[in-house]
Amino acid sequence: MNENDCLLSVKQLEKRYGPHIGCQDVSFDLYPGEVMGIVGESGSGKSTLLNCMAGHLKPDTGEVVFNTRTEGLRDTVTMSEPERRLLSRTDWAFIHQHARDGLRMGVSAGGNVGERMMAVGARHYGDIRRTAEDWLERVEIDTSRIDDRPATFSGGMQQRLQIARNLVTQPRLIFMDEPTGGLDVSVQARLLDLLRSLVRDMNLSVIIVTHDLAVVRLLADRLMVMKSGQVVEQGLTDQVLDDPQHAYTQLLVSSVLHV
């Protein structure tokens, strides 16, 4: 594959907080349909990296090159804020750890799913509503709840609604920040199952940050292991988890019960 096939290309990304390193010297390519997992303990820089890639934080140096629909490869770090904000409501999606951060709590479930469609010009109420119903079904929320506000939903339902709200416009790249993090174990399993089938059925391209190796084992094609802001090991998920090379990865893997 040549560079033009690649969906996202991160080059030499670095972010510092004063003398403290957030992340440093991170480079990788992501191809369409691929799921990249980023693992590490809290403070390892994985969330900083995710936020730099998604345009929430401005990196100090480096490039985040995205293959845009109309103009081909573009560095999203240097593009104008309007362009970047347009990208984040069309081709990109961001799933927050806490559903409250990604949902409008005062707006009905249907309105939450419909917002991104309306933001890009959908103007047919009936169509918007039908699509919203369809998506509620796909994330296993009873369509009779379409006019209820997310505040009346359980934590797992809120997270599934956030996923529906993000996927409805068929984004080409999805950032996920600990999507199962705030949930009970039983709820986690169901959500993980849902995510796996969505990723497969829709051939999604995903960058997922988590401290939970079980999540990446299930979802990720490739894996990056981060420690103190640096990538210490990367490769195919099974390879990294079954035959970890770096001492830190070995420690991570051994500290997890078999999944």
């Binding site: 904000r85 347009l86 409501r89 009905s108 419909g114 917002e115 933001a119 103007r123 006019d147």
Partner: peptide
């Protein structure tokens, strides 16, 4: 300035839904 007006239609959507 960024022409982010999706929310305006969300309000109209909520009206019709209710």
């Amino acid at each position: 300035s960024l022409e982010e007006y999706g929310l305006m239609h969300v309000k109209l959507y909520e009206d019709i839904a209710r």
